[in-house]
Amino acid sequence: MLSQIVRPMVQTQLRLLANSRATRSTLISTVAQWLSFLGVRAQVTELDAGAGKIRIALTVDKPEAADPRDWQQILYNLQQSETEAELLSTSAANFTPQQQSKMQRLLAYLIQIGEPGHSVDWNTLYPQLQALGLDEPTLLGIRSALKVPQSLDDLIEGLDSDVAAVALPKAVSIAMLDKRVNSSEDQALTTLLKAMREQQEVGC
């Protein structure tokens, strides 16, 4: 079931990249997520080590789920001159306070159902969430949301597609922190994907 949730998400991620004004920096931040849980065809073209780290260069082919037009747009965007100062077209940093709260509560819900009946060890969880690329305001919002039980029905109601598109890959990463997906996590990810797709169809 996880693959059925994750693979369609590639198309959404590609569309975000195709419409981004900062495709290069956006791609850098998302490619690690792609390779961790998606069947992206990639070839390592360079690998070396230094300063306690491994450096890898990759050549990535068009994923099967990609719309050819989106893929061509991404290639075109990468060839254009860009600066780090350019704003992302779809980013949690550009969300309204209500959208930010919704995403934080969604991610808190995934954490809560990951180990039901167990209290969250924030000192252990915090660096794991940092490693997923979550910024400090989002982390603080998640910590606050963890203090009360979250309801999936309430979170899905009125969920807009931008929030769903940004939250879904983070939600999958959170569900995979313990290298497994329980039935509650599977249901939540499936529901989130369904809600996102329904919103996108309405917007078409």
Rank of each mutant, 00 (worst) to 15 (best):
M9D: 14
Q73C: 00
L2D: 04
E136V: 10
S89P: 02
Q128F: 04
D61T: 09
S161E: 12
K53C: 10
A57V: 09
Q80G: 00
L38I: 13
L16N: 12
T96G: 06
T12W: 14
E64A: 14
N123T: 13
I156L: 15
V202A: 13
M103A: 06
I56H: 04
D61G: 08
T190E: 09
A18R: 02
L189N: 00
E157S: 13
L87P: 08
S36M: 08
L159V: 08
D178N: 14
R15G: 04
T30C: 09
V6H: 01
A167M: 05
A164W: 05
I74S: 03
E136M: 07
L155N: 09
R55I: 10
S183L: 11
Q43E: 14
C204H: 15
D186S: 11
L47I: 11
A42K: 05
A175C: 05
L177S: 03
A51H: 14
T190K: 09
R55A: 11
V40C: 05
L78G: 01
D121N: 13
A164I: 07
L139G: 08
N77P: 02
S184D: 11
G52R: 01
I111W: 00
L17R: 04
E201T: 10
Q73K: 06
V148E: 15
E185F: 03
D61M: 05
Q112L: 04
Q72N: 14
G141T: 08
L75K: 12
R55Y: 15
S183I: 09
W34Q: 14
E64P: 05
Q128P: 02
L78Y: 00
Q130T: 13
A131K: 12
R15W: 09
I113K: 01
G158P: 06
D70S: 07
Q73Y: 01
Q150M: 02
I56T: 12
G133A: 02
A57R: 12
L106Y: 03
A167V: 04
A167C: 00
S36F: 07
T138H: 04
G117L: 08
A171F: 09
N77R: 08
A131W: 05
T96H: 03
D178T: 12
R105V: 01
D162C: 09
V172E: 04
R7G: 04
A32Q: 12
E136Q: 12
S173G: 14
V60F: 04
D121P: 00
S20V: 07
L47P: 02
D162P: 06
K53A: 13
L27R: 05
L47E: 13
E86M: 14
R21H: 15
S151T: 11
L140N: 12
S91P: 03
I5Q: 04
L132Y: 09
P68W: 05
D48V: 02
E201D: 12
P137G: 06
T124M: 15
D70C: 01
F37G: 08
N77G: 00
Q128W: 06
I74A: 07
R180L: 10
S29R: 12
V148K: 15
S119T: 10
Q100N: 09
D70K: 00
A188V: 01
D178R: 14
L192W: 06
L17D: 05
S81T: 12
R24F: 06
C204S: 14
E82G: 07
G50Y: 07
V172Y: 00
L132S: 08
D70P: 00
L58D: 02
R7T: 13
Q72T: 03
I156R: 08
V40P: 03
G50I: 03
K53D: 10
D160V: 10
V120C: 01
